[in-house]
């Protein structure tokens, strides 16, 4: 599968991140939340991998581990740096990470909290340039102005403060900042979910355009399936810390092979009164990652559960070209997608 024409940029292998649960005065360890539980995937250069799931499924934790805003408990995160070296991000110290930081950038969810309110747009967007050695103010001004133009903002806004901008404009500023250091990998964590409907499309279009123009690689984290479908080349679906299905956007939406993926698609209310949706809603609630059920994590909610699902944990396995699924019964089920 990895023998595709484009080389991979990031390869995540068996990533785990667990948070201890401590109780009482002595902070005794009473358990752990396995937020990310053995996640593996690759991102190829120039593609967008969508990471989708409901809250608490570990998608944001995965993203933060890759950014090394958190240190993973175990696993490897191999990154092909600009100079061709392959480094394991999970092993690097703070100091070793610093030269790599410009190559991996992030777009935030909250357009209000992600910009420093005390600094002008110029200082906000110019910050990554400044800390990475562009000391000349004149050069920085030119670069920031160019970045603002690139993201569809007027360069004369340079000396305004974030409070003067709307949510959509701030998100553009955040994108400009993420692109300032010409990153090889951009991690976008729910970049449009806090925006108004009429502004979401603008930002999605901007991301698509920027990707073609600058040949960017995106890891796109979102809970909204329609947004993920719109922007991704491939999609990984997460449930209780694990990837349950990973395939090309086309394949996963046309023929989902995991019952959870199919249920997730059915649950999205269609913006069309003649297409009733959500009639066969999934019963029950997302499993507790501190105390997941035995066997397949999804079996208590799955309409196709058999004995093997209750006892044996399924592995993520290939089924068809580049289509990975974590389900015992993937071959026998005939699930309908959304296309």
């Amino acid at each position: 599968m990895s023998e595709t024409a484009t080389p991979w940029l990031l390869e995540v292998r068996h990533l785990r991140k667990s948070f201890p649960i401590r109780r009482g005065f002595s902070r005794r360890l009473v358990g752990e939340v396995r937020a990310v539980d053995d996640v593996s995937f690759t991102i190829r250069e120039g593609e967008t991998l969508g990471l989708v799931g409901e809250s608490g499924c570990g998608k944001t934790t995965t993203a933060r581990c890759i950014l090394r805003a958190m240190t993973p408990t175990s696993g490897e995160m191999l990154f092909r740096a600009a100079d061709g070296r392959i480094v394991d991000l999970s092993l690097l110290s703070r100091a070793e990470l610093r030269p790599l930081r410009p190559q991996i950038q992030m777009i935030f969810q909250d357009p209000f909290g992600s910009l420093n309110p005390r600094m002008t747009i110029f200082d906000n967007v110019g910050e990554p340039l400044l800390v990475n050695g562009l000391r000349n103010r004149r050069a920085r001004l030119e670069r920031v102005a160019a970045l603002l133009e690139l993201t569809g903002l007027r360069a004369e806004y340079l000396h305004r403060f974030p409070h003067a901008f709307s949510g959509g404009q701030r998100q553009r500023i955040g994108i400009a900042r993420a692109l300032a250091t010409e990153p090889r990998l951009v991690v976008a964590d729910e970049p449009v979910s806090a925006l108004d409907v009429s502004v979401q499309a603008q930002v999605l279009n901007l991301l698509l355009e920027l990707q073609t123009r600058l040949s960017l690689t995106f890891l796109f984290v979102a809970h909204d399936l329609s947004v993920v479908k719109h922007i991704s080349d491939r999609v990984a679906v997460m449930y209780v810390g694990q990837i349950v299905e990973l395939a090309t956007t086309e394949a996963i939406f046309r023929h989902p092979r995991h019952p959870y993926t199919a249920a997730l698609m059915r649950a999205v209310p269609a913006p069309d009164p003649h297409t009733p949706s959500g009639d066969a809603a999934l019963a029950g609630e997302v499993a507790n990652p501190a105390n997941p059920p035995p066997g397949c994590y999804f079996h208590p909610r799955c309409p196709f559960t058999t004995e093997v699902c209750r006892t044996e944990r399924p592995f993520l396995r290939a089924i068809g070209a580049g289509h990975l699924v974590r389900c015992h019964r993937a071959e026998e089920l005939a699930l309908t997608g959304a296309c």
């Binding site: 404009q169 502004v199 979401q200 355009e209 399936l225 329609s226 719109h230 922007i231 999205v268 913006p271």
Partner: peptide
């Protein structure tokens, strides 16, 4: 302008210009 499950992936959406 809303992305839906029924549009072709990775195409530009028609947008509303400007912001609220």
């Amino acid at each position: 302008s809303i992305p839906s499950l029924h549009v072709i992936p990775r195409t530009l959406l028609p947008t509303i210009a400007g912001s609220i």
